[in-house]
Nucleic acid binder design. Structure first.
Length: 421
DNA sequence: TCTGGGGTCCTAGGACCC
DNA sequence: TCTGGGGTCCTAGGACCC
């Protein structure tokens, strides 16, 4: 049986989450910002019509925001993450094989559905998600993931599709590819798009019809796979269980310059704490830890970016052990003449905790430490993040991410539940 | 004043091995 | 007058994704 993929994509996901819980925002220009309220990372349809570009820094469009009373929201990842899970749960009823691709996208296998029923099933799915979560989604169906993404794009843009388009056995496939710019094809980034356009390959259709050998020379096997996917030969399988991670990163930009070692230490301590929490949630231990620091790349002061990687003799997921390493690295990297703008920690050489070898020394101490971590995670899960924490993360936290316009975390915090008059 | 965060895969080239 | 062949592993860099 030939594979059939459906691609499900939430429309303007972050903005739609905001609108779902605040009906006054429906139909209005709304934007959601990145950390520190820096850049625009989601826009409502009305905001797109005002020509607010994806990724533009907020300070460059202050005028526009004022003039059109654009509603500005900080990122509320607690809300978006929870809403995402609810959307993904709806999909289980439509296919035994679901790949959660990102916070707002999924692929599902629909090869069990007869081709003439695909559009109906798509509509059913769309209505279900809308009813159960309040969120609008679009559905694209095709013989490969890449084509399904393209079908979805048309489903979003063309009103007559009513949000669902199947390109399976479709006479319109050439036209559908013709109308997609090559830069909008999944897997074509700015560098490849530039190269392709210089060769007069400007649409998805032209890319599909390009000689494979030419593509292989510049884009390698990834490019060849892409072209075949456009031809309708599935090369990218559904990935139902995500492969284990190779690294865990926690990094942030600071809202203002950080100059004191004490501040930098606090920040790195918090990032390390978060990274250790992530490791424990995923049952992984780090065999190496990298700390990196950087000055403001847009600033005029002295530029400095550096990192230190330390191997950890006994792979660990315990906050105190990782903190010791991270803080030591931070002191090595610190420079008194620099204004730091960003820092982060990266855990690598990850190993599942249940496969860790017994420690030659201090195994009992390690067992106790793991017990402590379990208790700390339990307390923090029940009474809120950082109820129990290391003193190293500080109390003033002048460097903390700015979130001036965040909406309530309606679905994950009891004290922020939606109230209706 | 103000410019995000967290990932992956592939390839080329060097070191090293027999 | 001529300098093998075929592997593996590691790393850095480039490209991409949301």
């Amino acid at each position: 049986m030939p594979p059939i993929f459906a691609h499900i994509d939430c429309n303007n996901f972050y903005v739609s989450c905001e609108q779902t819980f605040d009906a006054r925002l429906v139909g209005r220009p709304v934007i959601v910002l990145s950390n520190n309220d820096g850049c625009v990372i989601a826009r409502s349809e009305a905001a797109k019509l005002l020509d607010v570009r994806m990724g533009v820094p907020l300070f460059q469009i202050e005028d526009l925001v004022q003039r059109h009373a654009i509603v500005v929201r900080s990122s509320n990842y607690a809300l978006y993450g929870d809403m995402s899970q609810r959307v993904m749960q709806c999909l289980d009823d439509f296919s035994p094989h679901v790949e959660v691709y990102s916070i707002d996208e999924a692929f599902i296998d629909l090869s069990h559905v007869p081709p003439n029923r695909l559009t109906d099933v798509g509509q059913l799915l769309r209505a279900r998600v809308r009813k159960w979560t309040g969120l609008p989604v679009s559905v694209g169906v095709a013989a490969s993931k890449t084509l399904a993404k393209i079908a979805n794009r048309h489903a979003k843009q063309s009103p007559k599709t009513n949000g669902v388009l199947s390109l399976v056995d479709s006479p319109h496939i050439d036209l559908a590819l013709e109308r997609i710019a090559v830069a909008d094809v999944w897997g074509i980034g700015p560098a490849y798009a530039h190269w392709l356009r210089r060769r007069d390959i400007t649409t998805a259709r032209a890319l599909r019809d390009t000689d494979e050998r030419e593509i292989r020379r510049r884009m390698g096997v990834v490019g060849v796979r892409l072209v075949r996917e456009l031809q309708g030969t599935s090369c990218l399988a559904l990935e139902e269980c995500p492969p284990p991670r190779h690294s865990v990163t926690v990094s942030r930009s600071f809202p203002g310059p950080v100059v004191l070692l004490s501040e930098l230490r606090e920040a790195v301590a918090l990032f390390t704490t978060r990274a250790a929490e992530k490791l424990r949630r995923r049952n992984l231990a780090a065999g190496a830890l990298t700390v990196f620091v950087a000055t403001d790349r847009f600033g005029r002061g002295p530029q400095y970016r550096a990192s230190t990687t330390v191997e950890i003799a006994h792979p660990s997921d315990a906050t105190p052990e990782l903190l010791r390493v991270a803080l030591h690295s931070t002191e090595e990297l610190y420079r008194v003449d620099c204004e730091f703008k960003k820092a982060g920690v990266v855990c690598t050489a990850l190993a599942p905790t249940d496969t860790l070898p017994v420690r030659l020394w201090n195994q009992e101490k390690w067992d106790r430490l793991r017990g402590v971590m379990e208790a700390v995670d339990g307390v923090n899960a029940r009474f809120g993040p950082d109820t129990v924490r290391s003193a190293a993360v500080g109390y003033q936290q002048t460097w903390r991410t700015r979130v001036a316009h965040r909406s309530p975390r309606y679905t994950t915090h009891w004290d922020e539940l939606l109230c209706v008059d």
